[in-house]
Structures are given as structure tokens and as C-alpha cells.
Simulated assay, not measured.
Amino acid sequence: MKKKTIAIDMDGVLADIEAQLIEHYNKANGTIVSRESIQGLAEEEAFSDRTLLRGVLNTDNFFRTLPVMPDAVESLQRLQENFEIFIVSAATEFPVSLAEKVAWLGEYFPFIKWENIILCGSKRIINTDYMIDDHCKNLDYCMGKPIMFTAFHNVNQTHHLRVNNWKEAVAYLEETL
């Protein structure tokens, strides 16, 4: 029997980009942005200096040194028993991130085959049974079942099924088997 497929985003879902982004942005801008202060804000509101933000995101090793989300590694190992997993990242906007993301995945998720890593510009072409992402701009085009992973910028959005962490994501997906 063919396994169902899951497209899983990297930043904000597998990798804790929030913590690193806040740290780098504050250092570069001399601000005191915190996780609590940006809850419910759009990214443009939370990080208003867009030029500075793009500079932070294009810094060498920014993506390579992101912390892993709690329970992400164990959750993907467990899900891989019943699902085919594709890591899908809209990475081409930040070309410096491409090699860094591949290396990061190799370190933390070595059980994901290279052919199941998709670094793209738009996720509209992704056709999997499920998509786990933190951005509605990706989930709104999902051809399968969209699953929104909670992040500061989506806490007020309610038009997709929401999971708050990897334990909830695994529980939901295993119920669908």
C-alpha cells in the first residue's frame, strides 16, 4: 500500500527561526524585541526594518545554526514509519540559505533522503496529502489537507487546522491512518 505524503516546512516548523531572528535583529538594530512582544503581529509589524531583516536573513550561517524545534526529530522518525515525508522550504528567496539548509537537515534529520528535500520559490506546486507550514500563504494553496503550525505571526488566523507543537501534529496525523 502506498504511503500518504506530508510536505513539512523548515523555518518555524522544524527549525526555531523565531529565537534566532529575534536575537540577530535585536543585536543589529539595538532593539528589545521578545517572543511575547511579537505574538499576533504580522512579520512586517514585528520586524519593521525590512532592509535590516533581509540583511539578517542573508547573514552567513544564520540558517545553518538554527535550533531544532522541540520533538521535531523524534516526530519525523515516527511519522516516517507510515508516511513519506518531504521537507519543503521556500528557500530561493535567500540564496545563501540553500547550502546551509541542506547541511542543517543532514545534521539533524539524516534519515530524510536527499530526494525528499525540495528547496523552491513557491509551494503552490506541491501536491502532497498533507502540508505542515506556519504560513497561510503556503497553506491556502495546499492541494491536500493543510495543517498550520503555530507561530507568532499566525496566532490570530483560524482558517486552517492548527497544531501547536510536534506532539499534536503526530497525534493528528496518526489518527488519520
Rank of each mutant, 00 (worst) to 15 (best):
W104V: 00
N154C: 12
G106D: 13
W114Y: 12
Y108D: 01
D134Q: 01
K137H: 14
K123D: 10
L139H: 02
T128E: 02
R124W: 05
E175F: 07
E168R: 03
A169P: 06
V102C: 03
N164W: 02
Y172T: 04
A169T: 13
T158V: 10
K167H: 09
M148Y: 07
K123E: 06
I118F: 06
P146F: 07
L119H: 09
N127P: 01
F111I: 15
V163L: 05
I132T: 06
D140W: 09
H153A: 05
L173P: 09
E174K: 05
N156R: 14
K137D: 10
E115R: 14
Y141H: 14
G121R: 11
G121F: 04
H153I: 04
W166K: 07
T128P: 02
W114V: 15
I126Y: 01
I118K: 12
H159E: 11
E115S: 14
V102D: 01
A103E: 11
N156C: 14
N116M: 05
A151R: 02
W114T: 15
R124H: 10
R124C: 08
L119I: 08
V163I: 13
T158D: 08
A171L: 08
N164M: 02
Q157E: 15
M143N: 10
P146K: 05
N127I: 02
F111N: 03
A151M: 02
E174Q: 12
R162K: 14
F109N: 02
N154R: 04
E168Q: 15
N154V: 12
K145G: 00
C136W: 06
Y172F: 14
K145L: 03
N165T: 12
D140N: 06
L161P: 04
H135D: 11
C136I: 06
K167C: 08
T150W: 00
A151K: 00
W114P: 08
K167E: 10
H160C: 10
I147G: 00
I132C: 05
V102W: 00
K123S: 13
T128M: 09
D133E: 08
L105M: 10
H135C: 12
F152V: 03
V170Y: 00
N138M: 04
V163G: 03
E174R: 02
G106N: 15
G121W: 11
L139I: 03
H135V: 04
P146C: 09
E115G: 03
N164L: 05
L161R: 14
C136Q: 15
A169Y: 00
G106L: 07
H135K: 15
N154S: 11
A171N: 06
